[in-house]
Design a protein around this nucleic acid. Sequence first.
DNA 1: ACTTTCTTGTGAATCTTTTCACAAGCGGCT
DNA 2: AGCCGCTTGTGAAAAGATTCACAAGAAAGT
Lengths: 192, 192
Amino acid sequence: MLELIQDDGGVTVSSEQLARRGHTTAAQVRKDLSHFGSFGKRGLGYSVDELRDRLRIILGLDRVWRVILVGAGRIGSALFEYPDFKKRGYDCVAVVDSDPAKIGEKWGERVIRPAEELESLIKELHAALVILAVPASAAQLVAERSVNAGVRGILNFAPVQIQVPEDIPVENVNLVMELEALSFQITRALTP
Amino acid sequence: MLELIQDDGGVTVSSEQLARRGHTTAAQVRKDLSHFGSFGKRGLGYSVDELRDRLRIILGLDRVWRVILVGAGRIGSALFEYPDFKKRGYDCVAVVDSDPAKIGEKWGERVIRPAEELESLIKELHAALVILAVPASAAQLVAERSVNAGVRGILNFAPVQIQVPEDIPVENVNLVMELEALSFQITRALTP
DNA sequence: ACTTTCTTGTGAATCTTTTCACAAGCGGCT
DNA sequence: AGCCGCTTGTGAAAAGATTCACAAGAAAGT
Ligand SMILES: NC(=O)c1ccc[n+]([C@@H]2O[C@H](COP(=O)([O-])OP(=O)(O)OC[C@H]3O[C@@H](n4cnc5c(N)ncnc54)[C@H](O)[C@@H]3O)[C@@H](O)[C@H]2O)c1
Ligand SMILES: NC(=O)c1ccc[n+]([C@@H]2O[C@H](COP(=O)([O-])OP(=O)(O)OC[C@H]3O[C@@H](n4cnc5c(N)ncnc54)[C@H](O)[C@@H]3O)[C@@H](O)[C@H]2O)c1
């Protein structure tokens, strides 16, 4: 949001303006920011540039994160070609698949590597994150292998709840469940 | 989860078992369910079949939801080919794109329709949901047009917060932000 | 019929998040 | 310099979510 405001030439922004854009309240914006420090100027609001930079540091975005993509299927290829990842500091350093027909295929600058190399690739390329784009049946095993090889976080597209040590953060993307959330809200509005 | 338990031949399940699988607590499971009624048997747990059916009704999954996909790009095509949507009751009744090179292309049984037909397709096919898989710059306009044509909910993949009437639920999928959530948690663990 | 073993459903207690509301501070204007 | 119009940062209050803890009910064994 702050980058969009920068593009529009905004120099300062108030908690009220951020709240309107972000679908929340001004008090919430201020309270949230106050957990990390004090970034604004009374009477003026926040400097867009400064707040952006501070948040980037807080979020850990002031470095490049090396990512390995596991599963070169439909969703994997869409993700691989998505330019925003690179632009936002996420560098896909390897793509791995278990299908012999896919191994060796060239994707841009990368060649699809066999699944057995997962551990060695994580170690050699110092990948901190993996994206799991494999069938649900393979997800738990791939997650365990990744964690054992030293990965620090997992973005999981498979519709299963994977079990990993609790110091390894996992973010789940479950698109069916997103649609179900819409169905629920629509249904509930009809039968209150 | 209940369907996985069914497949494994489970007949009853306790709140404790559900909690372990779902990464939560037994009290939470029971309290959440209690908001919708009383589905279990003391000493036994929940009937897997019955709880599944009751939840399907609560979530509004006891019908087919007609969905229109807007944007036949990388993520759009991955979604279109994802078999779980159909399997879970979400029927993609039309695909729409603004690119003349894509209009008319055949995707399985569907033909990509021009973006101008969005409103008429929503009305004629009685689509309740749209999936926005268009560039961020187009998302707000497509959302407004969809709502005006009678859509009831929106699944938005564009990395912008769209503004629609508050009785229209919107679910956002922002993959960069998911990675950023991982970066934040990893970074925070390093500097407590 | 009675005891034992489980597990639910739910008030009450606790913990967390959000909202309120206002003193304090900044910049511009006279 | 002094006043005015804004906006932050933050304690205190209110609202909301989670956890505790236990009476009550169900099955199974004796
Ligand atoms: N396609 C979508 O839009 C979509 C949406 C949401 C979630 N998902 C989920 O994402 C996952 C992948 O979906 P998809 O549609 O891309 O499926 P896909 O079948 O097109 O791709 C999966 C790929 O993973 C590879 N693979 C299988 N086991 C592997 C292993 N052990 N190691 C490495 N690679 C392995 C397969 O060879 C295949 O190339 C699934 O869990 C699916 O439920 C897909
Ligand atoms: N590719 C990914 O993995 C990915 C991941 C997350 C989010 N996204 C987001 O999803 C959206 C689509 O991404 P993509 O990678 O598929 O892009 P893309 O460019 O491959 O596809 C976008 C499609 O939308 C069409 N389009 C543009 N304006 C339109 C309009 N007004 N009406 C109908 N169709 C229109 C284009 O012709 C194109 O076919 C973007 O907002 C992107 O940020 C993509």
